[in-house]
């Protein structure tokens, strides 16, 4: 067991015993791999794990516990998602206890049934510059070096996006796993007349992916939850990264870095020249 894991369990026990938090959201091991767990009793803290398979974002669950004080295990990107959601008035800072864990990158998921033993670091982790959550109540330092195994990078425009979109199954796993897709009525699914139908027309996959990319622009924290949940491995984060670059170039805005900077282009000063 690694020392961050020991520290994490000790902290969780302490927080629950002193009733600082009502529950801790973390990761636990299961036969099918690492999965989220919700710890309510100090006796259960031994379940908590921390390793490079803890890739899915837990931030998504925070909105389900609005009236409770919740402790959450957060990597750098998860912390950024919390910042961005606080700015969007979806979360209340005082109800969250952020257990920041220093992250060295996570592994790419292994496909079901694959016999690969060598694990690779996820591609979005290589671009990551924020390894520790920007807001935190407690920091757990890592004791390991960054993951080594790199993936050769290609240019984003070299990908044939239209044929990648064609593979999409419209399973909505990307929408369901993203911390920012909290709309009660998703414009891709629920509108009448619908812009995108669930089963009808393949050309609508183009609309589906472009609309989702537009909704993520300037908000996506590149946590990769969408991409890791995608059963057909569409590198969605690379597409959203391009749009975040547009925000960086035009407004100097990077989502989730601090609580003060308001998201552009919602703000401009009175009398400001266009």
């Amino acid at each position: 067991m690694s020392s961050p894991e020991i520290e994490l369990r000790k902290l969780a026990r302490n927080l629950l015993e002193r009733k600082v938090v009502d529950l801790v959201i973390g990761y636990e091991d299961s036969e099918a791999g690492v999965r989220p767990c919700f710890i309510k009793e100090p006796g259960e803290v031994e379940k908590l794990v921390w390793n490079p398979d803890c890739r899915l974002s837990l931030v998504r669950y925070l909105r389900g516990f609005k009236e409770k004080k919740v402790g959450i295990v957060a990597k750098g990107c998860d912390g950024r998602a919390i910042v961005e959601l606080i700015k969007e008035n979806q979360l209340d800072r005082k109800n969250i206890f952020i257990i920041a864990v220093e992250c060295n990158g996570v592994y790419k998921p292994v496909k079901y049934g694959s016999s690969k033993t060598r694990r690779q670091m996820a591609e979005y982790c290589e671009k990551c510059e924020v390894r520790v959550s920007p807001i935190k109540d407690y920091l757990i330092k890592s004791d390991e070096k960054a993951l080594e195994e790199k993936i050769p990078k290609g240019d984003v425009e070299d990908l044939d996006w239209l044929s990648l979109f064609r593979k999409c199954l419209r399973c909505m796993a990307c929408v369901r796993s993203c911390p920012f897709c909290y709309c009660t009525e998703c414009s891709i699914e629920g509108f009448k007349p619908a812009l995108v139908h669930r089963l009808v027309d393949p050309v609508e996959l183009f609309t589906f992916h472009l609309i989702r990319a537009i909704h993520m622009a300037g908000r996506c924290v590149e946590c990769g939850a969408c991409e890791s949940s995608c059963p057909v491995e569409i590198p969605l984060t690379r597409l959203y990264h391009e749009l975040n670059e547009w925000f960086r170039e035009n407004y100097g805005y990077v989502p989730g870095l601090n609580l003060e900077q308001a998201p552009p282009p919602l703000v401009f000063k009175e009398g400001e020249k266009p």
């Binding site: 996006w161 992916h209 472009l210 537009i214 035009n250 282009p265 009175e270 009398g271 266009p274």
Partner: peptide, 27 residues
């Protein structure tokens, strides 16, 4: 410039620019 304090066209302009970047990315 023809609009007074707030300029909705600027929002349109920003959206169009973003959309063009997206279209270019997907080919």
């Amino acid at each position: 410039v023809e609009l007074r304090k707030i300029a909705p066209s600027r929002i349109t302009e920003a959206r169009v620019s973003l959309l063009r970047r997206l279209l270019k990315t997907v080919g």
